[in-house]
Design a protein around this nucleic acid. Structure first.
Length: 259
DNA sequence: ATGGTCGTCCAACGA
C-alpha cells in the first residue's frame, strides 16, 4: 500500500500536476493540504474516474485538506474529535483507508514566535494529540501525515541559522512533535534515510529549489506496526520541477499490506 | 544550463 502526502498550494492551480502525479506515482492514498477550495468546487468526479474515493474539508480560499483513497474511506472525521469546539479552519481530516487510520493535517504555520498565530499552532498540536487518542491507539495501524510546518531536527533545514528567531524549529514546536512521537509514532522518512539535505519544501523565492535550500516539514508519522511494515520512503523531487509546481513536493511510503 | 515568488484575487497579505 502506497501512501503519500502533498501540500499542493491551491488545488485549482495544481489540478493538472496532481492528476499527472496520480497517474505515474499510483498512490493508494494521497493526503493533500492547502487545497484552498470550497467543497462544492472539489473535483470529486474526476478523482472517482481515476479510481479514488475522496473526502474534502474545505473552507474556500484558504487552508483545506483532502484524502484520496482507492482502498476505501470509512469512519471519517472532518475536525478534532476532542470534544472541544471545532477548529474554525479546515486543517484536519481522518479516515480509515485499507485498515489504516489516516489523519491528514495542515498544521498552522505560526508566522513568528511572538505572534498570536504561534500560540494557535502550539495549541493546535495539543488538540491533535487528544484527537489521536480519541480516534486510534498506538497498537493499531495509524498514520498521521501532512504539512507539519516543523523541521524535526537541524538536519531537516538547509541552514539552521534560518531557524534563529523564527518558527519551524523552536523548542516549543519540536516539543509538541516529540510528544506525538512519544505517543507511539515514528518519523518514517527519517527511519529510512539518515542523510541531511533531504527536503520536501523550497521557497519560491530566490531559486531556493535549485540552490537546494529547503526544509523537510512534510512528515509521515506511523505507529510501530506501520513503521515495521514500511519497505521504503521517498521524497519525489521531480514534482517540484517543471511548470507550475507547488512549493512542496510529495512524500510517499510503501507499506507491506494486502492492499 | 536553469530560472529568476506564487496564490488569494486586484491590494496586500500569507506562506
Amino acid at each position: 500500500m502506497r501512501i503519500a502526502t502533498w501540500n499542493v498550494n491551491s488545488l485549482n492551480a495544481r489540478l493538472q500536476r496532481v492528476e499527472e502525479w496520480l497517474e505515474y506515482a499510483q498512490p493508494d492514498v494521497l493526503c493533500m493540504q492547502e487545497t484552498k477550495m470550497s467543497d462544492e468546487a472539489f473535483p470529486a468526479l474526476d478523482y472517482a474516474a481515476l479510481g479514488y474515493d475522496t473526502i474534502h474539508v474545505g473552507q474556500g480560499q484558504w487552508n483545506g485538506v483532502a484524502i484520496l483513497s482507492r482502498v476505501g474511506v470509512e469512519n471519517v472525521y472532518t475536525n478534532f474529535a476532542d470534544g472541544q469546539p471545532p477548529d474554525e479552519e479546515a486543517r484536519l481530516v481522518t479516515a480509515d483507508c485499507g485498515g489504516v487510520t489516516i489523519t491528514c493535517v495542515y498544521v498552522p504555520n505560526g508566522r513568528s514566535p511572538d505572534h498570536d498565530h504561534f500560540q494557535y499552532k502550539l495549541a493546535w498540536l495539543d488538540r491533535l494529540y487528544d484527537h489521536l487518542n480519541e480516534v486510534s491507539s498506538p497498537d493499531q495501524d495509524v498514520i498521521i501525515t501532512g504539512d507539519f510546518n516543523i523541521a524535526p531536527e537541524d538536519i531537516d533545514v538547509w541552514d539552521p541559522k534560518v531557524l534563529e528567531g523564527a518558527t519551524h524549529g523552536t523548542v516549543e514546536e519540536r516539543g509538541k512533535l516529540e510528544r506525538l512521537l512519544d505517543w507511539g509514532l515514528i518519523d518514517i522518512f527519517r527511519q529510512c534515510h539518515d542523510a541531511d539535505g533531504l527536503f520536501s519544501w523550497w521557497d519560491y523565492r530566490g531559486g531556493s529549489f535549485h540552490k537546494r535550500e529547503g526544509m523537510r516539514i512534510d512528515l509521515v508519522l506511523g505507529s510501530k506496526s506501520v513503521a515495521d511494515a514500511t519497505r521504503f520512503a521517498l521524497i519525489d523531487r521531480n514534482a517540484r520541477k517543471g511548470k507550475l509546481p507547488s512549493d512542496h513536493t510529495p512524500v510517499l511510503i510503501d507499506v507491506d499490506r494486502a492492499a
